[in-house]
Computed example of a mutant assay.
Amino acid sequence: MSDSLTAATIRITGHDGDDIEAYLARPEGQFPRGGVVVIHHMPGYDRGSKEIVRRFAELGYDAICPNLYTREAPGAAPDDAAAVARAQGGVPDARLVGDVAGAAAHLRALPSSNGRVGVIGYCSGGRQSVLAACNLDLDAAVDCYGAFVTGTPPEGFPLQVTNLVDQLPQLRAPLLGLFGAEDSYPGPAQVAELEQILTAHGKDFEFHTYEGAGHAFFSVDRPSYNVAAANDGWERIAAFYAKHLGA
């Protein structure tokens, strides 16, 4: 397998037949491989999110990141688009599921697809990754410090979200969760609650919590970046997807 890849901005069919923007990266060659849907964090469809898409392509997967803010702010800079979406309460859950479904369908339609697709999300995208895995036929899901999978948003929280406790019994895919011990949303108690619920329902999951790491420890361009936690997290993601999607 070569580490050469191609990447491009494309259009895909999202929720309710909407035409939305997405960023697609693919390894060179037509060997059979799995696909990964990357759900961007609340700051938006930005350079960091696209770098993650390319990283999965370098690991041997077709990877795509749908621009969840296409409708609110088409063509806007990531920060501006995120501000508009946040002011409107964030991305509705039903629309998120539809957009991820469209992204997964696009990956499965590629001639290189082996039929298996995983999803991964960071920050708000971590919650949305779990949401997608509760409602779609996916083969693996990764939650990177997603807030309010369990727990309750504080008063004045800018996004109109609820927890997913009532949906967790429907989880359809193995789940990898990566969390920071110093995070508040999700805090250790919320992670423990999630673990208890998934255990009670016999779900396939593995969680890892990193001491000394807070929220957004994967974000290389933010003060929260934690080298040790991020490096170990990437190794665990690679192994998890190799097991469930095929490297």
Rank of each mutant, 00 (worst) to 15 (best):
M1S: 14
S2Q: 09
S2N: 08
S4A: 13
S4P: 08
S4D: 12
L5V: 07
T6I: 12
T6F: 15
A7H: 14
G14E: 06
D16G: 09
D19G: 12
I20W: 02
A22Q: 02
A22F: 02
P27N: 12
P27W: 00
P27Q: 05
Q30G: 12
P32F: 07
G34L: 06
G35P: 08
M42W: 15
Y45E: 03
R47G: 11
G48N: 08
G48I: 03
E51Y: 13
E51M: 12
E51A: 10
R55N: 09
E58R: 12
L59S: 05
L59Y: 10
G60L: 06
I64P: 01
P66H: 08
L68Y: 06
T70Y: 02
P74T: 09
A83S: 09
A85H: 03
R86M: 15
Q88N: 15
G89Y: 08
G90I: 00
V91L: 12
V91I: 11
D93N: 13
D93C: 13
A94M: 09
R95E: 12
L96H: 07
V97N: 03
G98Y: 01
A101G: 05
A101C: 05
G102Y: 07
H106K: 13
H106R: 10
R108A: 08
S112W: 10
S113E: 13
N114P: 13
G115F: 12
V117K: 01
V117M: 05
G118M: 04
I120E: 06
I120W: 03
G121M: 04
G121Y: 02
G121E: 04
G126K: 01
Q128G: 08
Q128F: 14
S129H: 04
S129R: 03
L131K: 01
A132W: 04
A133Y: 00
N135A: 14
L136P: 05
D137I: 13
L138N: 01
A141T: 04
V142T: 15
V142F: 09
G146F: 01
G146S: 09
P153F: 12
P154C: 10
E155Y: 11
G156T: 12
P158L: 11
L164Q: 01
V165N: 02
D166H: 04
D166L: 03
P169D: 01
P169S: 07
R172Q: 14
A173F: 10
L176C: 07
G177T: 03
L178K: 05
L178N: 01
D183M: 12
G187Q: 08
P188C: 06
A189S: 11
Q190E: 09
Q190P: 00
A192G: 07
I197Q: 01
L198F: 00
A200M: 02
E206F: 13
E211L: 15
E211Q: 11
G212V: 12
F218V: 02
F218C: 01
S219Q: 11
V220Y: 09
V220T: 15
D221P: 00
P223M: 09
V227S: 11
V227W: 10
N231M: 11
A239T: 10
F240E: 03
A242H: 11
H244Y: 13
H244L: 07
L245S: 03
G246Y: 08
G246I: 06
A247W: 09
